[in-house]
Design a protein around this nucleic acid. Structure first.
Lengths: 128, 128
DNA sequence: CTTGACCTTCCTGTGACTGGAACCCTTATG
DNA sequence: CATAAGGGTTCCAGTCACAGGAAGGTCAAG
């Protein structure tokens, strides 16, 4: 498989796949013409990476998960630990965003939104 | 005021304040020694920026908000529009994160997390 | 033989800073 | 007066995970 085909198959942009090779996440072979040649295992890896990234795992976490995936003698506890750590991160981000939303929504609700200059949003940003 | 003092007053790191000057958000004067000299209005601006950034507004949105803040003939509708746009962004991010969390939480819940290699999390990342 | 689609590498840019090096200014102290 | 500490200054590099684009090589079809 050339990069275009595997890109279509995995849904990842070719640029991203090249980048993943750069940082050592996949190691496709090379044809006589210099083109990358992807085997099925490479494509599977890339699919795995795409899904892990879609769940918000960082590249480094992806690297760990990939290593665990390839290690047939892994302990599922190790995988779970990585996932739980990431879940905490996600929860924290959600909380932070929800707090922003709540504050901002309150400011917006108090703002008339007309052609007059008086604006509680700007006042709220000025200071308490 | 020197940069250290205004940094303490606003809670922003000095590095950030220099960066804000670089990109034209504040324009402190300079003393004979080359030091930045911040007036009260500069400090107020920086406080405003710090709060807007804390609510997740991008630098470009901050620039807009700052311009509106300084424009005494603004229409509050313009401010509200920026804020509402940002609220939408926040909601979208929250939804995306919540979706990640739900998917990931389900995988985690199905994982024994023991010393055996069998792991639904990895299976879930492989494919549907 | 040419066209057009595909592939290659390399360089730059993104957002919003952060860290660090190398150097200047000010103030207090021995 | 020398010096040391604690400000300040500029500039350069790095972060994260790619994306855009230039310049050029390769391949299959007409």
């Amino acid at each position: 498989m050339n990069i275009g085909e595997v890109a279509e198959q995995t849904g990842l942009p070719a640029k991203t796949i090249r980048y993943y090779e750069d940082i050592g996440l996949v190691t496709p072979q090379r044809g006589a013409n210099g083109y990358r040649v992807f085997r099925d295992t490479d494509a599977h890896k890339l699919t795995f990476l795409g899904r892990a990234r879609a769940l918000g795992f960082s590249i480094e976490h992806c690297r760990e998960l990939l290593a665990l995936w390839e290690d047939r003698s892994r302990a599922s506890a190790d995988v779970r630990a990585v996932a739980l750590g990431h879940l905490d991160d996600i929860e924290e981000k959600i909380s932070a965003l929800a707090a922003m939303r709540d504050t901002l929504a309150e400011l917006v609700q108090n703002c008339a939104g007309d052609d007059r200059p008086d604006c509680p949003i700007l006042k709220g940003l000025e200071g308490p």
